[in-house]
């Protein structure tokens, strides 16, 4: 039933979800950008080709990407407890979310960077740029629009993961859907949570696309 208490619960859950998603997003990018950059620059055609580093990092990324999120979430419970001191609640979900999303973000970043024209990088090298200068003055700025589109996709994925966390006590909209929609057969509540999640995804997606378009100087 949609009474005042339920509306208040939904309100709190929306905030919990946004909190989980946004904090996880920031941390995933903090880890994912370096991963993506390293994967890009150490590849065969990168600016610092290094096969062992590329191969090892690639394998690690693939391992974490291939573990289904729900399993990772449960498997990581002890680690989560060690880091945040609890196994339940939105903050505890951030740990597995980041572990799962960072490798995904890394691949997204890698693919955005690989879209950059090799000629531009070569020009930067011909002007005496160091590798570090190429990374933060050429690779990342040139890939900015593509990185933002990637972020819109990543945030949708993280939002989806965060809802799964509701099943094991993670809080947020996923918990509402599980506790009311699933266990108590309250179809109305289930539907409302779905609609809210869809709306949130739409907003993130649109904001991302519009920002990317606005920032892209390649479009006249």
């Amino acid at each position: 039933m949609l009474d005042n208490a339920m509306i208040a619960l939904l309100g709190t859950s929306i905030w919990e979800t946004l909190y989980m998603v946004i904090v996880s997003m920031i941390l995933s990018y903090a880890i994912g950008i370096p991963i993506g950059v390293i994967l890009n620059i150490t590849s065969k055609d990168g600016i610092c080709p290094n096969r062992p580093v590329n191969a090892v990092l690639g394998v690690i990324v693939n391992i974490f990407r291939s573990i289904p999120f729900l399993i990772l979430l449960i498997w990581m419970l002890p680690v989560t407890e060690a880091i945040v001191g609890t196994m339940v609640g939105p903050t505890s979900v951030i740990v597995p979310l980041v572990v799962s999303a960072a490798p995904f973000v890394g691949r997204m970043v890698e693919s955005s960077l690989s879209e950059i024209d090799g000629g531009v990088i070569e020009a930067a090298q011909s002007m005496g740029s160091s590798s570090w200068q190429i990374i933060y003055k050429v690779l990342l700025p040139e890939a900015k629009p593509s990185l933002i589109i990637g972020a819109a996709i990543s945030i949708t994925t993280i939002l989806g993961y965060s809802a799964m966390a509701g099943i094991v006590g993670g809080g947020g909209l996923g918990a509402v859907a599980t506790n009311y929609g699933l266990y108590r057969y309250e179809d109305e509540i289930m539907l409302i949570t779905i609609v809210i999640i869809v709306v949130i995804v739409q907003i993130f997606q649109e904001v991302g696309m519009i920002t990317a378009k606005k920032l892209d100087k390649r479009l006249k």
Binding site: D117, V120, E122, M127, G128, K217
Partner: peptide, 23 residues
């Protein structure tokens, strides 16, 4: 030192290779 030297030995290209996100 090589990077330093390259600053006194510039290069231009067939496809111009300008940074697309900079004026």
């Amino acid at each position: 030192e090589l990077l330093k030297k390259r600053q006194s030995m510039s290069m231009i290209f067939q496809s111009f290779n300008l940074l697309s996100q900079r004026t």
